[in-house]
Write a protein that binds this DNA or RNA. Sequence first.
DNA 1: TATTAATGAGTGAGTAATTACTTATTTTTA
DNA 2: TAAAAATAAGTAATTACTCACTCATTAATA
Lengths: 173, 173
Amino acid sequence: MTDKQERILSCGLQLFAKNGYNATSTSQIAKAAEVSEGLIFRHFKSKEGLLHAILKEGQQKIDQLYANVINETEPKSVIKNFLQIPFLVPQTEYNFWKLLFALKWELDIDNSVNQKPINIVLTKAFEQLSYKEPDLEAAFLVNYLEGFTSAIVKGDGVPDSNLNAFLQRKYML
Amino acid sequence: MTDKQERILSCGLQLFAKNGYNATSTSQIAKAAEVSEGLIFRHFKSKEGLLHAILKEGQQKIDQLYANVINETEPKSVIKNFLQIPFLVPQTEYNFWKLLFALKWELDIDNSVNQKPINIVLTKAFEQLSYKEPDLEAAFLVNYLEGFTSAIVKGDGVPDSNLNAFLQRKYML
DNA sequence: TATTAATGAGTGAGTAATTACTTATTTTTA
DNA sequence: TAAAAATAAGTAATTACTCACTCATTAATA
């Protein structure tokens, strides 16, 4: 991975996140990365190739984030860690999350593959805590977190921890 | 409002919702509406002008949807009606909601203007029901509904009423 | 009432600029 | 010195938008 290659990835992420995939041209990326436009196509074949390279790089970070939930065994900690997810994202990675949310609508790139195992683990946790309808409890929280994450990534400020503290009380975590 | 004018609005909404604003060209819209491309600019001045005309037309439907919550006085009904919102959207209007969600990321057109009064009314409802932290209860549900609505509009199927029934039990509505 | 003037809807053929991408060539590196 | 990295200068296609024009209907005038 050369220096210019990294700059293309970085500037590509930045511009895609800020202005959207379709509204960002390869010439803009080249100019921002101080690189000839042709180099983008030499390294990534196409504009879409560049996008997927960017996504692949970020996927590791997502997996790492979800690992705290999936690898946890104690049911209360599963729920607690799940609700903590948005607070574990460093602000430097907000661009990547912004891009993910946008792509869900702009193209049909859906990242919900990772959400199925989360849902299962979460359901199991509520089950162990003797909740009457564990699957619906899980679905409820998953939808909440989607909305919450969307809001903080959109506003790109530090997430409000009051709501999280409130939920920890509510669910006695 | 002439027939062709209506066709431009309708096809514009359809294509913007399906493929995104930036990925839809005015020539595509003209072809779909069986209209000369120039007519779009005669009536709506610009591509962005067309977009805003489409949004203005749909805004009424949103206001109508939220009215059931804001005009309600009985606190339990406020919460109940709020949670009902996604089920009141006819499938014929899914395109419009899809467009709203996409625009939130693609351009910076935010529709959260309407959400502030909802939040206030919802907080007041929890207050009247003697919840200890009504503002956080409201924020929790607002985030949930954002995630839930996003999911059903994205999957454009009929929303699952199980989750809603579950919440009505949970909050004793 | 007959004629003229004015208006708005609609079209088709343009425009310059930008798009994603290619190719031939040069520079850098191992 | 051979291979890889990088560039400059292209390409055809598409973009949002404009222009000059026709046609039909309505309003004003003689």
